[in-house]
Amino acid sequence: MTSPPRLRSHALSATDDPFASLTDPAASREPVRRSTSDDGAALPPPIKRVVLDRTPRPIDPATDVVAPIAKDQTLGPERLRIEHVSIGYGEARVVKDLSLSIHQGEVLALIGPSGCGKTTFLRSMNRLTEQTASAWREGQILLDGRDIYETELPRLRRKIAMVFQQPNPFPMSIFDNIAYAIRVQNRKTPGKAEVRERVVDSLRRAGLYDELGGDLDKPALRLSGGQQQRLCIARAIATNPEVLLMDEPCSALDPRSTAVIEDLIGELRESLAIVIVTHNLAQAHRVADNVAFMYLGDLVEHGPVDQVFEQPRAQRTRDYVAGVFG
């Protein structure tokens, strides 16, 4: 299913998130912390000031949190249901009482200023936050009606796959990268022939197979950044997951690779539920069905993409969207 191009004639500002730097005093400190917390990612783009038509004003967080409006009924069955989830590190509460649900065939874009807890929330869905010693969580996350803590971890993560901000292929051949994902732990089953079939199939679905010209034994690190990221997507979907989490998957890529990956998201959505974190509102607009806007840990607004971008109901959403669409 292809959605008609929805990109409007809004002039896009080049910056990621100018609004945060205007309202949130912590945001001006953020770049230093961010460059270290994201595994040595490239430094964030220089913050460009954007002139808003109004001065943003601090808002009492509780006043404009908006309940989701009725869901689009054309979507598939519900996959993930998040109920009153709060997540924090030590004393800090980073995600506050967040509830939403995600259906098969849906692409949900998580947007919001830097440091509002998008990555934390995303990583809690496949239980990667547990890796941080100080992290805690309240509330329930259900996958197909079952608490994710009831499924054993390896199985859960094969159902809820993840693509990271930085392409992170393993330093093995392209084939081994995906074969590693397909095999349960290091078991020899399924056999070579079946693995090969599934490797090729994943690469096809990720739109990488034809580009490789059959050379699957090439070291994965020799691929270009965009190809590496698509390899990571191929790896993530190789286990036939039900949910695909993507944390700013295009932030390290050029516009062409970004476009390829956006097309890919459009194709993958039929069999999956996709949650994508992005700072690029135009991208959210292009790929998402629904948008969730987070601000300082609150889920401020959650609704269909057109509604959130064109008739945002919450003041903070309006400010955020306006700030970027200038």
Binding site: Q131, F164, P169, F170, Y180, Q185
Partner: peptide, 22 residues
């Protein structure tokens, strides 16, 4: 880098499998 470990854990691999293979 941490992204190597997390990449493997996110595929549902146990720690020991990650250590041995990656």
């Amino acid at each position: 880098p941490a992204k190597l470990r997390e990449g493997s854990w996110a595929l549902g691999k146990t720690k020991i499998c990650t250590i041995r293979t990656v």
